[in-house]
């Protein structure tokens, strides 16, 4: 006989865990959005808010990790339950890193505030949009247990890598043509580089989600 709800309390706790991971991911999405707004509008206040949001991400990280350890100790999870908890612990540390990188991105955005915009300034928000979409889709894939979407997100990472390469070339050209704006070009390039790192951590999360669902540890990133 299937005993419906025999582990109802535990199931509820796993659900809450997953909700918290979602909230943590959404917070990073908010950081990406705000950071780009701060950059586009040279808005110092928005930049401050991004940095504040990182504290919230760190708090999620701690709370979720504590919860995971508590569930491991008290529920002795097996099979998928075990994979969910073990993966969650990895996923939150990846999301936590994303938050840190967004702080770095924002710090460079701040340094660029009040300086004349480069012709290539629009490339950064464009890249950020791509990264944000990857994160959004990863969160969707987690809640829908959608492995196809996971694979797609990982493929999108290539586009981010390609964008970074392009931006590198553009920056080089800009520096050669206008050495006086080298500083701005380099700052911008740093922003792109950190965004690219965020995308890498998103693909790590994807691999964990894949493991959670299939029990297979696989390098999805090619």
């Amino acid at each position: 006989m299937i005993n419906e709800g025999i582990r109802a309390t535990f199931d509820q706790e796993l659900k809450e865990l997953s909700d918290q991971v979602m909230a943590m991911g959404i917070t990073v999405m908010e950081m990406i959005k705000k950071s780009m707004n701060a950059f586009n509008k040279s808005d110092e206040k928005l930049a401050q808010e991004v940095i504040k949001l990182d504290d919230r991400v760190d708090k999620y990280n701690q709370d979720i990790e504590t919860k995971c350890v508590q569930l491991l100790a008290t529920q002795q999870p097996m099979a998928k339950d075990l994979r969910i908890i073990a993966s969650t612990m990895r996923i939150i540390s990846d999301i936590e890193r994303m938050g840190d990188y967004m702080v770095d991105v924002t710090k460079f955005a701040r340094r660029l505030m009040g300086k004349p915009k480069l012709a290539s300034a629009g490339d950064v928000p464009k890249m950020a949009e791509l990264v944000e979409k990857m994160l959004q889709e990863t969160l969707d894939a987690i809640s829908k247990k959608d492995l196809e979407l996971i694979t797609k997100v990982v493929e999108d990472d290539e586009n981010v890598d390609a964008a970074l390469r392009n931006m590198f070339d553009t920056a080089m050209l800009e520096i050669e043509k206008r050495p006086l704006s080298a500083r701005e070009a380099i700052y911008q390039l740093f922003m792109a580089r950190y965004l690219e790192r965020v995308a890498d951590h998103i693909t790590n999360v994807c691999e964990r989600v894949y493991y959670m669902e299939t029990g297979e540890l696989k390098e999805l990133h090619v």
């Binding site: 299937i2 025999i6 582990r7 097996m78 099979a79 998928k80 075990l82 299939t214 029990g215 297979e216």
Partner: peptide, 19 residues
């Protein structure tokens, strides 16, 4: 068997959702 059981019935049993 305990990290990635192949059969749903094994999963249900070892995770305490059946028995």
């Amino acid at each position: 068997v305990f990290t990635n059981p192949k059969d749903k019935r094994t999963e249900d049993y070892i995770t305490g959702r059946f028995g």
